[in-house]
Design a protein around this nucleic acid. Structure first.
Lengths: 165, 165
DNA sequence: TATTGTTATACTCTATAACTATA
DNA sequence: TATAGTTATAGAGTATAACAATA
């Protein structure tokens, strides 16, 4: 367990990270802002999926996902086909043009990182990647199980507990 | 030097970090969004300074800084006094109310991190902090010295080079 | 003429709420 | 009645450009 000063320093780094994000953003094609890039990357990573699934992976509201997807569909990078199993739903799939766009994004970001992190060792890059992945996971877990006050004090009876949904 | 797959994975983590940022943002008092918090924190860290200096530390355009500062001044958390040495300039200084606000921010973020990172060791927190600080520094360095194409081929003369500003 | 700030405008990302179509 | 998705609206962050005041 870290102390308060360590947490404060970590938060400062989180805040300063915005500068890195903006630097990367400036590098992106103006047609493909970060929201679009995230959609493409996740579809590439996880394969075809529904809107709700993508929203979950993006960790944003579905209304936001809908906007980003619309932008990406307009540019022909993904297609939205009706789900035969549930007519409310739509299946998202990367197009060849979408794949090409991903390759271009990858080319640009890789080049930027190769320049900026030229003096980082392989292991340092891997370490930062691991820690950030774990950070995200730790926040996900906490969101799933928020500050439960004191653990529930069980009644001192033998009665079968009611099902609390 | 890392390979392309490692860089791609790191970029994915950067993108996913937005979820952590939003989680923290939700925790903040609505009167004090992240822009305001950054202003307060930097003033606390570095002491009184001018707008341009703060803009540099925030790594955003001064127009953005001006907006954030105005918001914070309206709430009485900092004061903007004229700089006697340069009447174009203004000196920013934290007020006691600003200090109180910082304490409140610190209280909230510390509590959140203590919950989310409960199973992180002291050393892991420190490691992530270090790596993110270095990341920021590496990007700063690259911005200062961008992709210089081939190193300048010097003319084969003995003439004193003209001063190129 | 150059620098320090401020303001106007525009764009991206995000969330909430209202709405449509289907289950 | 509940769920999948869309759209309208609003708020925050950012950048560019035009502007004012001062150096």
């Amino acid at each position: 367990m870290a102390d308060q000063a360590q947490y404060e320093e970590l938060i400062r780094q989180f805040s300063a990270f915005g500068a890195v994000k903006r630097e990367i953003g400036r590098l992106m094609p103006s047609e493909c802002p970060s929201g679009s890039a995230a959609v493409l990357t996740l579809l590439d990573r996880h394969g075809d999926m529904r809107m709700s699934n993508l929203a979950e992976l993006l960790a944003v509201d579905m209304s936001v996902t809908s906007r980003h997807v619309a932008h990406v569909v307009e540019r022909g990078w993904i297609e939205r086909s009706p789900d035969p199993a549930d007519k409310r739903s739509r299946i998202l799939r990367l197009t060849p043009a979408g794949r090409a766009q991903i390759d271009e994004l990858s080319r640009r970001t890789t080049q930027l990182l190769a320049e900026c992190l030229a003096d980082w060792s392989d292991e340092e890059v891997a370490q930062l990647t691991r820690l950030m992945a774990r950070l995200r996971a730790s926040f996900d877990d906490s969101r799933a199980a928020p500050h439960r006050p004191p653990p529930p004090v069980l009644e001192q009876t033998t009665r079968t507990p009611a099902i609390t949904k």
